[in-house]
Design a protein around this nucleic acid. Structure first.
Lengths: 357, 357
DNA sequence: TTGTATGCGTTATCAC
DNA sequence: GTGATAACGCATACAA
């Protein structure tokens, strides 16, 4: 018994044909007579040959059939973020046309052996978000001549982007609050960077994550001086922590809170209830994303519904196009404001601007 | 200007060293003097060399750093199934230790170019579910000498399995209903096969999907003759359709319904309400999975909470072990019954009322 | 229709 | 510490 697996050369020898002939039998690229075909198959069976080695085949033809999907955070967080899940759904759909597999990647890898943005065998890459950190490795990827598409981020010149109208959309929510009469508003943002801690931030704090920056800008277009708390991630628990911090000082409770995600908003609603505040009578809350959040019924968040699935699908199409050698354009998708029931005019006797204590 | 990308050989030539030396500079496997190291790096920069080609490197070293995750259904369905998402989460965690990337695959591919179970460049495979259809391709994979682990399925001899105590768990729910006095029970199952249509099935209908079969067996251990409706998938809408069918005949409404998933159960609750039935006063409902389902509050499903994340993590660990050349054992994880508030003794006047106890 | 020859880009192994 | 060489396993252009 030979210790190594049989190769196509072995099969060819066993069948008494040339390696190229055997190869063609498996790929079907060229007509082969039924008799030799049968001989080759028989030889393959006899030897326990399982078909061409994917790695070798890929090397030879220069394509792996793999599209890398790169996330900024820890990989498992993808599966806890409802928006990302929807986007992946759309992406799977979009690349399905070209029939590629999706390889889940992180930007930099703690372990040594893992495939990363620079070392994964992929034909194209889709970045979800694009921090400055990621932008470096991206340079290497582009040097490899691999098509790249970015969802919600800026990867520089020549990289097609799939975007939302984050700033405009967030401004719409803020305008809605303003029209109701709110002036005493607190903003709760997504993380400022991939490694920041939660807490109150100053007006001129540097925001390294695009989505966060855009949505913040939209809110500040209407409420330039609103105190701002940056969360550590888009989780209900983070929103809850933010809410506790905001409601800690009972003598200064804002009349409205603009959260940059629905999960954050849900946590804030929980915190408000804990503090004995009614939503929206005592405090209005708006979210962002338009995902279904469990556990805050009968509250139904005022939010910006984003086309999460379409985002992924658009990215998939862009990748497909580039792989075909066609050009791909950037796309901006629009969010839709859904009023819900978590906003109302400010309560009577609202105090002045809330200050973090 | 050469039209092709530079290779490590080009870099070596440019730097005036041997290809092997240049290679070592990038891999760091062998000490290299600082000076040559610098020369090589400089040459790489000058040529715009982006590092070793992953495909070629993988071919040479026989490892791609990729773990394939295979699903029975359309790939995008993964992202709409809360249980699978949790399992993926755990899996990402589990393989993270060995630092592998996760490649999402379908078992058979409509398009030609996509990597499939048999053509993807992977070091190991994790199957989620294992239908007879899948079992064929699996043979080919094993022939390639690739370690395989199956979650919730049977892939035959020698393939480690990560299982739930589906039958026992479902029996526990059925026993609970029986103890409450129910005898007039309907079972709503998951799909019988990957392509079946929804509808009532006979007692001896063939069930090709393992999970469905096991859970059905558990329910029938207690209610052998219960009418059974097979859903077309684990969706709220499917449960709703099942419920409508069940409640269509007002003169004969069962006192309890055993659903094989929480999503199905949620749909059944909706259908019950639509039919003017109260849950649990008029009809009891049990689910399976223990995922949070939105929209049925204040109902809280009686269900079997399954350790979805642990399932994935266990699979990841098994893969890691096999990749290290160690043996991996099958694991059976236990579900926990959560009573919720959707079960109660059967309503008066129900056929065949039993005394509780 | 089949066979021949070559290269895809690396890296492991050994000698120096 | 560095270099020569030989695979890794396959697919394709081209000749027969």
């Amino acid at each position: 018994m030979s210790t190594r697996r049989p190769t196509i050369a072995d099969v060819a020898r066993e069948a008494g044909v040339a390696p190229s002939t055997a190869s063609v039998v498996f790929s079907g690229k060229t007509p082969v007579s039924a008799s030799t075909q049968a001989r080759v198959r028989a030889a393959a069976d006899a030897l326990g040959y399982a078909g061409p080695d994917p790695l070798a085949a890929s090397l030879r033809r220069g394509r792996s059939g793999i599209v890398g999907v790169v996330f900024e955070e820890h990989l498992r967080s993808v599966f806890s973020d409802p928006v990302k899940i929807l986007t992946m759904d759309g992406l799977a759909d979009g690349v399905g046309e070209v029939g590629a597999g999706l390889l889940l990647l992180r930007d930099h890898d703690p372990a040594e052996t893992a495939p990363t943005l620079t070392t994964a065998p992929m034909d194209a890459a889709v970045l979800i978000g694009c921090s400055p950190l990621l932008r470096e490795s991206l340079e290497a990827v582009r040097a490899r001549g691999i098509p790249v598409v970015v969802i919600e981020g800026d990867a520089g010149e020549g990289v097609p982007r799939i975007l939302l109208d984050n700033r405009e959309a967030q401004r719409r929510a803020a305008t809605h609050l303003h029209a109701l009469g709110h002036t005493d508003v607190v903003i709760v943002t997504l993380p400022l960077a991939s490694d920041t801690r939660a807490g109150w931030i100053s007006v001129d704090a540097e925001v390294r994550i695009d989505v966060t920056r855009e949505r913040l800008a939209g809110a500040r277009d209407v409420f330039p001086d609103a105190p701002t708390y940056a969360a550590g991630g888009s989780f209900i628990d983070e929103g809850f922590a933010a809410g506790r911090s905001i409601f800690a000082d009972e003598s200064h409770v804002p009349t409205a809170i603009i959260a940059q995600s629905d999960l954050l908003a849900a946590g804030i609603v929980h915190a408000a209830r804990e503090a004995g505040l009614r939503v929206p009578e005592d405090v209005s809350v708006t979210g962002f994303d338009g995902v279904e959040v469990d556990g805050i019924a009968p509250a139904e968040l005022a939010t910006l519904v984003q086309p999460a699935v379409d985002k992924g699908r658009a990215a998939g199409r862009a990748v497909t196009a580039m792989l075909d050698g066609r050009a791909a354009d950037s796309v901006t998708l629009a969010c839709e404001f859904r009023e819900g029931n978590t906003t109302a005019p400010p309560r009577r006797g609202a105090r002045g601007v809330h200050r973090p204590g």
